[in-house]
Simulated assay, not measured.
Amino acid sequence: MSKAIDDALLQLTTALTRLEAAVGQRFEAERDPGDLETELAIMAEDRARLAAELDAASARLATVEAATDDVGRRLGRAIATVEGVLVPSGRPR
């Protein structure tokens, strides 16, 4: 083959390779919106699940805080009762 034919075949091969790459990118680009929609749907589901878990954890925290306050009040009364028994009436504590 002549140099001109070899050069032309090289240019043709390069052009075909670039065309194949462009077609592949185009197919990927067309496929991405569906993938993006799926990913967004998964993220929305995760967000909803996490929000529900946060709400449940907040409710448990409120319950624990209320119980802690109640225990604190009862402990305060118990301490006052024990001090009242240990410290005779009329004497400073």
Rank of each mutant, 00 (worst) to 15 (best):
I42W: 06
A78E: 10
V64A: 12
A52M: 03
R91G: 01
A8N: 05
V23G: 00
I79E: 13
A15K: 09
A22L: 07
D55K: 07
D70E: 15
A62I: 02
L54F: 05
L86A: 13
T14L: 08
A4K: 12
L36P: 01
V23T: 07
E37S: 12
A21V: 05
P92D: 15
T81Q: 11
M43N: 14
A56P: 01
R26H: 13
S89C: 05
V85Q: 10
F27Q: 15
A21Q: 09
R77Q: 14
T68I: 07
A62Y: 01
A44Y: 02
V71L: 14
T81S: 13
T13C: 04
R18Q: 14
T13F: 06
R31A: 14
A41L: 09
R18M: 13
R93A: 15
A4R: 10
L10R: 14
E20G: 06
M1Y: 09
Q11N: 13
S2V: 01
V64D: 05
L10Q: 13
T14E: 10
R93Q: 10
E65Y: 00
A48F: 01
Q25R: 14
L16Q: 11
V82F: 03
I79K: 12
L40I: 09
A44T: 08
R47P: 03
A80E: 12
L61G: 03
L54C: 05
S58E: 13
D7W: 03
K3P: 05
E83T: 10
M43Q: 15
V82P: 00
D46C: 06
T17R: 14
D69C: 03
A52L: 03
I5C: 05
R47F: 13
L50N: 11
D7T: 11
M1I: 05
A52P: 00
A66S: 05
L19F: 14
R91Y: 06
R77P: 00
P88M: 02
E37R: 12
A78G: 03
A51T: 07
L61N: 08
G24W: 02
S2Q: 04
A56Q: 08
R73T: 11
Q25G: 14
G76D: 06
A15P: 01
T13M: 07
P88W: 02
T14A: 11
L16A: 11
A56W: 00
L36T: 13
